[in-house]
Amino acid sequence: MRAAIPTRAAVVAAAAVLLTLNVAVWASGDAPASVLMLAARGAFGSGYGLAQTLAKATPLVWTGAAVAFALRARLFNIGAEGQCLAGVLATAVVGAALPSSTPWVIAAPLCLAAAAFGGASLGGFAGWMRARLGTHEVISTLMLNGLVAVLTTWLYAGPLRVGAQVHTRPVVDGARLSHLDLAVHAFRGSALNTSLALAVIATVVAHLYLTHMRGGVAIRALGSSPRAAEALGVSTASTTVRAMTISGALAGLAGTHYVLGVKGYAEQGLGTGVGFTGVAVAMLGAGSPWAIVAAAVLFGAMAQGGLAVNARVPSDVLSVAQAAVILAVAAVRANSRQERP
């Protein structure tokens, strides 16, 4: 299977951003060209801006890779949203439960595993429902999103809250992922952390797994022709569960960016929205791990650029542009021959 570089999608995405931004900025009563320059400078023009763009891209790499992974089996994991929240919860609980002297060689892997497990359990459950009961994964994962949102809201406001704080107990120091501004002085003050590197590595590894390993090839076979796959001895049930479990694990790992990287604890609202944006990232970047990373950086840049222009036009102008990108790319993908991942 060729890793199609979605050139056409990229062109359409760029056109959609420019067009919507022009209209939206003009409607807000400002000059599109200068606002766009300001947004671009905010997102890429300084070390800090660039680092913030990459920090905002980090969870999107995770969730984008998650959605794209399930898509290879032609499964629509719209539950990355809830799986990410579950990852946030799991890693925060495990990280806070460890003894404070736990060395990082033990704490960090345990917390990463917890995040992966949190997401994987939800994804795997949806996969199991699909395989055994025929429940469409879009419906089951959407409902699981709702359940997890209710659960975490209650836990963070009640049982897990620390006294007057509105967040959970902090994780042990050993579990914290280092901020990259320790290494690169220009990034100073940014939330960028090693979760980005882990996300990029995981995205590439997931791709290699799909292209080079037996289990991964079975997942793609299921996606391109379920009947042929079955005839070749691929078990639809176990492959479906595996694809959704791995996808869920990737989405859950997005929690590491927030809990182990940025905050050091979990709170209400961490990770909200990145699951759905991950769907967009996967749509834009399907087929190639680098395209997923690039798409995540694009959405991260739009989020960061939005903050940069907020004094002149509402930052949500950039989110409108994101919506336009998603619609345009979805339409283009449906009408091009490289449509199917």
Binding site: A24, A27, S28, G29, F76, I78, V138, F276, T277, V279, A280, M283, V313, P314, D316, V317, L318, S319, V320, Q322, A323, A324, I326, L327, A330, A331, R333, A334, N335
Partner: peptide, 26 residues
């Protein structure tokens, strides 16, 4: 245009959330 309904739905939700906020400001 035969876009995937789930993806288009995500986009419409984002458009409504962000679009109403822009209009609110304007």
């Amino acid at each position: 245009l035969r876009a995937n309904a789930i993806v288009a739905g995500v986009a419409v939700n984002l458009l409504a959330a962000a679009g109403t906020r822009v209009a609110l400001k304007v």
